[in-house]
């Protein structure tokens, strides 16, 4: 019984990581209605920016804030420079651009910062306040994810700009007619997704250590979480992320047939399963296209 409890708590802790990445996935989906495969690598790169700022002696929270600003601007620039020219191109061209971004960020990070893992500081105390089952940082990650979720909820439901963004993504033609600058809304979406990714990266790095490939596996679980909860719903993404973390641990520990060898397969089965049975996920709205 103790093992179950420990695995569930540890699953929630890892789930917190997946949830924060899933949030960034949902954010970009709100803006462009696609997945961005370079999301994880952008987050990893932002984390290196934060690491460099801390290395040169900046206090954690100053570096944290500055990293968010840099990541936001970086996200907007990527949209303006790389994806803007492609916005009428077929979806395949855009996906290839995402993959190119993935490889570029990964290689450039390796080239500048090397592939040696680096410890990344946590803003939370080292003492295990919540017992030995879950570290203070892991509880902190869950808290930060929930706070981000709250901010996003308010932003998308109550702020003018958030509503305009949703409108621009769902119905670009009509939005343009009512005076929303659709192009800039997409860029804003990229900026916000990049900043959320930066938070996720800075929360993940103290747990998995900072290195250029740190997000590769996590992004896959983040996708699974986002899909399970529903790609159109930030709440769904967070719930989905936690569920994937817990399911993965319980199945890996207690189903001998799957075991630790097929843990990743569980995430992939979730992705395929959701797409076949309920593409809108647990909390998402069904996507209806008018013909």
């Amino acid at each position: 019984m103790e093992l179950v409890l420990q695995q569930v708590l540890s699953g929630l802790a890892t789930g917190g990581i997946y949830a924060s990445v899933a949030l960034a996935v949902v954010m970009i989906y709100q803006a462009i209605e696609h997945f961005n495969f370079a999301q994880g690598e952008m987050a990893m790169f932002s984390t290196y920016v934060a690491w460099s700022l801390i290395q040169i002696g900046m206090p954690y929270w100053v570096a944290f804030g500055l990293t968010l600003v840099i990541s936001f601007i970086g996200g907007v620039l990527i949209e303006r420079i790389v994806l803007r020219p492609l916005h009428r191109a077929p979806i395949l061209s855009q996906i290839i651009a995402f993959i190119a971004l993935f490889v570029i960020f990964n290689s450039v990070a390796g080239w500048i910062f090397t592939y040696t893992i680096k410890p990344f500081p946590s803003p939370f105390p080292e003492e295990p306040i919540f017992g030995t089952f879950i570290s203070t940082h892991q509880v902190g990650v869950i808290g930060v994810t929930l706070v981000m979720l709250g901010i996003l909820f308010v932003f998308f439901n109550f702020s003018r700009i958030g509503l305009a963004m949703r409108a621009a993504a769902q119905n670009p033609e009509s939005s343009r007619l009512v005076g929303i600058p659709v192009g800039w809304m997409t860029a804003l979406g990229w900026g916000l997704a990049s900043a959320i990714g930066a938070v996720a990266g800075m929360m993940v790095a103290p747990i998995v250590f900072l290195e250029p490939n740190m997000m590769v596996g996590i992004l896959l679980y983040g996708f699974a979480g986002a899909l399970l909860g529903g790609v159109t719903s930030p709440t769904g993404a967070v719930v989905g992320g936690f569920l994937v973390g817990v399911i993965e641990n319980l199945v890996g520990t207690f189903v001998p047939f799957i075991g630790t060898e097929l843990k990743l397969t569980v995430a992939l089965v979730i992705i395929v399963g959701v797409l076949t049975i309920k593409p809108s996920g647990l909390f998402g709205r069904p996507v209806v296209t008018r013909v």
Partner: peptide, 29 residues
């Protein structure tokens, strides 16, 4: 698997097995 984000779950299971010797066959991260 190399794609696993962490090995936390595995370490919890190993502790639960009652092992008092741990042979750690892993790459640096």
């Amino acid at each position: 698997e190399v794609t696993d984000p962490t090995v936390d779950s595995q370490i919890i299971s190993l502790k639960d097995s009652g092992a008092d010797v741990f042979f750690n066959v892993t790459t640096p991260k």
